[in-house]
């Protein structure tokens, strides 16, 4: 009798089915915490994967991706509220605006290398928060998306987070397919060259600035889209949420490192670990020790320290070894 061997791809398939079905299950069984956490897992996977194109492949640690997120969010909100343009169209436009923004930012920051680049990009959160506080429509108060009964689909106003999870899943899948092909091709090799040795890359004939800009431009577009999805999910945006450094600059960086910065799926793995962990702690703290709010952020920070010092290549290599052993 021929025994059927369980292979990694079967496991992946089951995981895929699970993720596809889970949002619906949370709806049917009325599990709001799991529903929201799942949404965060997916949207952060989208963002972390985008960040890693410039971060893990290009070797440039950009700590200001929140600028692109926030711009995408604001553009989507402004188009919906002031121009009555449906977010189905507004979200990609938000992405486009984010990419446009990445061009001057690239010229400004890419002449810096390594540590100085990271430090300089860290300022973007504060700069944009202040900018939108003073000049943004709604100022500090922000913008709320309209509540229009009968036009819910138009304004992407759905009853539970689970629909947004499916939308994000769709974005994630397209993103995976597109990015995977890109990193296996010329762009991937050139980014790796830039990461490993910029001077040698130049000597090869690679226009280092151009390829850094491309990687960041793509990342910015996706961040903008994520921002747009965030806005339609939470129906509200203000300068502090939009350009939140911890949530949209640092978490995606930590998730990528946690999962494995040098692996294509590392950022996704990292998001799937980081989001449930921080959300669980946050909700626990809020419901039982409200005066300790922020503990979840501290845990994320400690996790980052531990990974940097003890496991710099992230969790992915461990997982790979584990799978190898299990399927021997």
């Amino acid at each position: 009798m021929k025994s059927k061997k369980v292979e990694p791809k079967h496991l992946l398939f089951c995981l895929g089915i699970l993720i596809l079905v889970l949002p619906l299950i949370t709806l049917i069984l009325d599990l709001p915490f799991l529903c929201n956490t799942l949404f965060l897992c997916i949207i952060y996977s989208v963002m972390a994967l985008a960040w890693n194109l410039l971060g893990g492949y290009g070797g440039q640690i950009h700590l200001g991706y929140c600028a692109f997120f926030g711009v995408g969010a604001y553009v989507t909100a402004i188009l919906a509220v002031f121009y009555d343009i449906t977010p189905w169209v507004g979200i990609p436009i938000g992405g486009a605006f984010a990419t446009l923004l990445s061009i001057p930012l690239g010229f400004a920051f890419f002449k810096l290398r390594k540590l100085w680049f990271a430090m300089a990009t860290l300022t973007l959160s504060t700069i944009f928060t202040l900018l939108f506080q003073v000049l943004g429509p709604g100022g500090s108060v922000g913008i709320t998306l309209p509540f229009s009964p009968g036009r819910e689909l138009y304004y992407m106003s759905f009853h539970g987070p689970w629909v947004y999870t499916y939308i994000s899943l769709l974005v994630l899948m397209v993103e995976i397919v597109v990015l995977y092909r890109l990193v296996r091709g010329k762009l991937g090799y050139f980014l790796l060259a830039i990461r490993e040795d910029e001077d040698a890359a130049m000597a090869a004939g690679i226009n280092v600035l151009k390829y850094k800009m491309i990687a960041m431009g793509i990342g910015a577009f996706i961040m903008g889209i994520a921002g747009g999805i965030w806005v339609v999910r939470f129906r509200f945006i203000d300068p502090y949420t939009a350009f939140d450094q911890i949530n949209f600059s640092l978490y995606i960086f930590i998730a990528s490192i946690l999962g494995g910065i040098h692996h294509f799926f590392g950022p996704i793995l990292g998001s799937l670990i980081l989001m449930p962990l921080t959300e669980y702690i946050r909700v626990l703290v809020v419901s039982h020790f409200p005066s300790y709010y922020g503990l979840h952020i501290m845990v994320a920070g400690i996790l980052f320290l531990v990974i940097s010092l003890l496991l710099p290549s992230g969790v992915m290599p461990l997982l790979e070894k584990l799978l190898e052993k299990s399927f021997k």
């Binding site: 790796l192 060259a193 040795d197 001077d199 000597a203 004939g205 040098h262």
Partner: peptide, 24 residues
Amino acid sequence: FPPYKVAKLGVGRTFQIVKPFERL
């Protein structure tokens, strides 16, 4: 001209201290 442009025009160089792409 920036180095990448010179390289594309047909000038190749090696470095005194080798510069491999280490992890590739």
